[in-house]
Design a protein around this nucleic acid. Sequence first.
DNA 1: ATCTAATCGAGACGGTACGTCGAGTCTTCCC
DNA 2: GGGAAGACTCGACGTACCGTCTCGATTAGAT
Lengths: 202, 202, 202, 202
Amino acid sequence: MKLVNSGAAPELRGPGRPRDEEARRRILDAAIELLEEVGFSSATVDAIAERAAASKATVYRWWPNKASVLTEAFRETWAPNLAFPETGSLRQDISEQLRNFSAFLITRKGRLLAALVAGAQQDEEIATALREIWIVPLRTASGKVLGRYRASGELAVDVDVVQDLIYAPFYYQLLTGYKPITAAYADAIADAVLAGVMRRKP
Amino acid sequence: MKLVNSGAAPELRGPGRPRDEEARRRILDAAIELLEEVGFSSATVDAIAERAAASKATVYRWWPNKASVLTEAFRETWAPNLAFPETGSLRQDISEQLRNFSAFLITRKGRLLAALVAGAQQDEEIATALREIWIVPLRTASGKVLGRYRASGELAVDVDVVQDLIYAPFYYQLLTGYKPITAAYADAIADAVLAGVMRRKP
Amino acid sequence: MKLVNSGAAPELRGPGRPRDEEARRRILDAAIELLEEVGFSSATVDAIAERAAASKATVYRWWPNKASVLTEAFRETWAPNLAFPETGSLRQDISEQLRNFSAFLITRKGRLLAALVAGAQQDEEIATALREIWIVPLRTASGKVLGRYRASGELAVDVDVVQDLIYAPFYYQLLTGYKPITAAYADAIADAVLAGVMRRKP
Amino acid sequence: MKLVNSGAAPELRGPGRPRDEEARRRILDAAIELLEEVGFSSATVDAIAERAAASKATVYRWWPNKASVLTEAFRETWAPNLAFPETGSLRQDISEQLRNFSAFLITRKGRLLAALVAGAQQDEEIATALREIWIVPLRTASGKVLGRYRASGELAVDVDVVQDLIYAPFYYQLLTGYKPITAAYADAIADAVLAGVMRRKP
DNA sequence: ATCTAATCGAGACGGTACGTCGAGTCTTCCC
DNA sequence: GGGAAGACTCGACGTACCGTCTCGATTAGAT
C-alpha cells in the first residue's frame, strides 16, 4: 500500500536511487558559466557535462535537449531584480528605471541576456522562456506603475508603446554593439521619450 | 546617378582565370533560398553548393565560413531597401520609413535579420558584417535626411537618439516576438516618438 | 595451446560502455571487402563505415587514419597463414612453405600485400605496422624451425640470410610483376637456394 | 618560308609557339626532387608546378596525369649505370655487381626506386615504366654475361632464377627496411647464392 | 539482510555538418 | 598557339557536436 504524503510533498517516490539534486545544480551552473564565457552555440553539452563532473547521460535523462538545459539554467539563475521605482514622478520613475536597466545590462548577466535572445531565434523553447522569465515579468512590473500614470492622464500614450520605446534601444545596443550602454545614454533616451523628438511649438 | 571613374582602370586584373561572377550569384541565391526554406542553422554548405551547382571548394575559396556566405547573401538581398524618404515633412518621412521597414521585416527575408543578429552574438565576424553591411548603411542613409531637420531646428534631439528610438522597437519585436509588427504599430511608434509620451501642458 | 592467466584479471576494464567488438569486426571486414573489390586507394573511409553500418567517428576513434584500418584489416585476414611446416627434412620444409606462400600471394588477398608495401613507402605508420604485424612474425615463425637446422649443422648459413633468399623473390615478383608466381617457380627457388647456383665440383 | 633543319630535324612544326623545352625540364626536375623528398603520393601536381615555376595547365598539356609525369621523370633521369662486370670469374662478377648494386640503393636515387615500386602498385603506367627502364635493362645486361656462364656449364641453374636470387633480397630490404643494406650484406648474399644454404656432403 | 529498481559517471555509438586538400579541367591575359 | 596564373568541379579526408546507448557502481525503499 502506498501512503500519500501528508501535506505538501508533491512527488511520491517508488524505490530506486533518487535524483541527485546536486548534480542538477552543477549542470545548470556549468551551463550558465559556459554561456557567459563562450555563447550559446559554443556551449556544448559535452563541455557542460565535463565541467559539471556529470555525464551526458545524466543531462539527457532530465532534459530533452541542449536548449532545455539552457532554458532551465536561465530560469533558475534569473531573479529579475529590476523592480520598477515608484516615486510619484513619471519622469523620475523612468529615468531611474533606465539607469538601473543599463547598469544591469553591462554586467555578466546582461551579456547572458544577449545569448538568451540569440538562442531564442533558433529554439522556440528558449523563445518561450525568454518571454516568460524576462520580458513579461519586466513589463508587468513596469506596467503596473505606468498604468497608473496612464489612468491619471499624465501619460499620453498606451503603456505598451511606452515600454517599447524605453526598453528597446537598450536591447538594440546590447545586440548590435553599435554604441556603448551608459548612464548618459539612459538619460538621453528617457528625455527624448518623455518629451518627443519634435520641436515644441512655442 | 553613377559616376564613371575618370582615368584609372576601375579594376585592373592580373593574369589567371577571373572569378566566376555567375557562380558567386548562384551561391548567394542558393543561400538565400535555403535560408528562407529551412532557416539559418539548417542551411548547410553542402546543400548550398549543390543547389548552386558549385563545389564546396568554391564556396570556401571566397567565404571563410558558412556564416559569411549567409551574411553576404542577406546583404545582397536587402540592398535595395535602404532608401529613406524625403518628403519635406519630418512626420511624414519617419512615418513612411517605419511603414516600409515594418513591411519588410514581416517578409520571410525580413525574418532572416533575426537569425543574423543571433549569429552576431557568437561570431565576431558576423557581428562586424552586420554592423558594416546593415546597421551603419541604414543609419547613414536616414542620418542624412534627419540631419537636415536637425540643422533646421525642427528636430529637437540628436539624430542618433532619434534613430535608436524609431528603429529599436522593431528589432525588439522581431527578436522577442512579443507583439506582431504591423503598419498600425509603425504609426503608433512614429507618433509617440515625435510627440513624446508625456501629456503636453495646455 | 592457450594458457589461462592465473589469478590476475585478464582484462580489467574501467567504467564506461565497453568497445563494441562487433562493430570492430564489421569495420575490418568491410575494409577487407572493399580492398579486394576496389583496391587500396579507392577504399574510402566513408564507404567502409557505411558498409560496416558504423559511423566514421567510430572508425576514427580506434584508428588514427585510413591506412591503419586497412593495415589492421590485412593483418587479421592473414594471421592464420603464418604456420611454418616442420617435417624433419629441411628441403621439404622450405619447399612446402614456399608453395604455401606462393599459393597465398596469388589470391586477391595476397595482392593486398603489394598495396601495403607501397603504402609503407610513404607512411611511416604503415611501414612500422608492416614490420611488426607481418614481416617480423613471419620471420620469427620460420626462424624457430630453421634455427634448429642451423644448430644441427644441416644449414650452412645464417637463418636471416636463408629467409631473405627464400622469401625475397616472391616479394620481388609480386611488386614488379616481372614473372607470374607459380608452384613451379616456388620449387625452382627452393632448389636453387638449397643447392646453390654454381656447378658442384665432381 | 621555313627552313628545314639540315640533318636530323625530325619534328616538322605547325604555326604557333613551339613547346618550351625548358619548362619541360623544370617540371621533370621538380618532380624528381619532390619524389625524393616526400615520396610518391605526397608529390602533388600543384607542388611540382609551383617548384617548376610552371602552371598546372602546362603539366597537363603534355602529360595525361600525375603518374605520367613521374614516369617520364624517371625515364629521363635514370641512366641505369650499373654495368654488369665481366671478370671471367662467376663468383667475382656476382660479388662485384652486388656491391655496386647495394652502393647504388643507398643513394638518393636508390630511395627513388622505392617510390617507383610503390607507384607501380597504384598505376599501371608506372609499373610498365619500372619494367622498361629498370627491371628489363638490368636483367638484360646481367643476363648476357650470366648466359655465357650458363652455356659453359659453370652456372647450374637458369639465368632468370639466379637473377631473382641475387637481386630480390635488396629490393626486399629497400622496401621493408628490415635490415640495412651494406657491402657485408651483399657479400653474404653472393656467397649463399653461389654455394647454396645446405651443408655439402663431405 | 537481502532484493529490486532507479540513478550516477564514463564513455562508445550512429548520424550529420564542417572546413581542408588533391586531381584534373577550364578560362583569361600575355607573349 | 604555348604558357603562367589561377578559378572551377568533384570527391575524400579527418574533426566536432548531438542525442542515444550500455557498462559497472551507488543508493534508496520494499521484502
